[in-house]
Design a protein around this nucleic acid. Sequence first.
DNA 1: CTTGACTCTCCAGCTATAAAGAGACTCTAA
DNA 2: TTAGAGTCTCTTTATAGCTGGAGAGTCAAG
Lengths: 138, 138
Amino acid sequence: MAAIGIAAGMKIGVLASRSGLTVKTLRYYEDLGLLPAIGRSEGGYRLFAEESLRRLEFIRRLKTLGLSLEEIQDCLAVHDAGELPCGDIEIRLGRQIERIDGQIKELRQLRMELQELLAGWQSDPAKDGNVICPNLQV
Amino acid sequence: MAAIGIAAGMKIGVLASRSGLTVKTLRYYEDLGLLPAIGRSEGGYRLFAEESLRRLEFIRRLKTLGLSLEEIQDCLAVHDAGELPCGDIEIRLGRQIERIDGQIKELRQLRMELQELLAGWQSDPAKDGNVICPNLQV
DNA sequence: CTTGACTCTCCAGCTATAAAGAGACTCTAA
DNA sequence: TTAGAGTCTCTTTATAGCTGGAGAGTCAAG
């Protein structure tokens, strides 16, 4: 019985305002298993530890970097198993770069196709009865 | 009663195999109003005109170029009103290029952030009890 | 004791584009 | 006449990440 003033746990609204997320989102994360509560109050209210804030910061950061909640959960599982997740995260972020490169490549190809198409565009071509828009013919 | 052998309309399976789309997709398009049937057979089967093939080609092409079905429907509405949709389509494709540019820009920024982060990555840093992954600290 | 803020669970919906399946009906060829 | 292929409508599912509401229970202040 040493410390005085150690909170038994935050209620969800407090965690929401401290983290900047909505109550709904926090419940959603808890349902997914991303954000375990330390328990429930007598009345059934979720109680969260201070550590939840760091966890949410971690989630937010990886989400910003484009990882899915599922991937983030996998990272957290490594952490929760007591291991440093850094190596795991590094690999995932590397894959994320590859995904991004693939997307950029696709977008660039599409952009080029669009631009070439528009380069030869005739906004008012002769009406061809069979074709909806003659410019689109390949 | 001049012509002989003019088909009264294709059934959906024929249109599916000729267009390369699935029956499900064609029904979906018809429900959306993208692909009007010319009517129904006595037994209630959808009947499609030859023109449906051109319409589907048009849809397929604009979808490939990244327009949504809703935008495509707007283009088709212009066509169905008896006007040439080319000018309309040109504008939409121009906007599509802008959208793509925006996406590419976002992806490049994200890629840069990821790469900078990984450049200084330590896969096995000293364990900091408070932080899940020290590399992610901003 | 009351009031109002907070929280609970459960259910529905949103974006877009279909796919999957159930149960019934139709059509065609042998 | 019958088998089997095709088609019908209607409902549900999928993805991802939430958001909103209903109706009921909890809690702290006055």
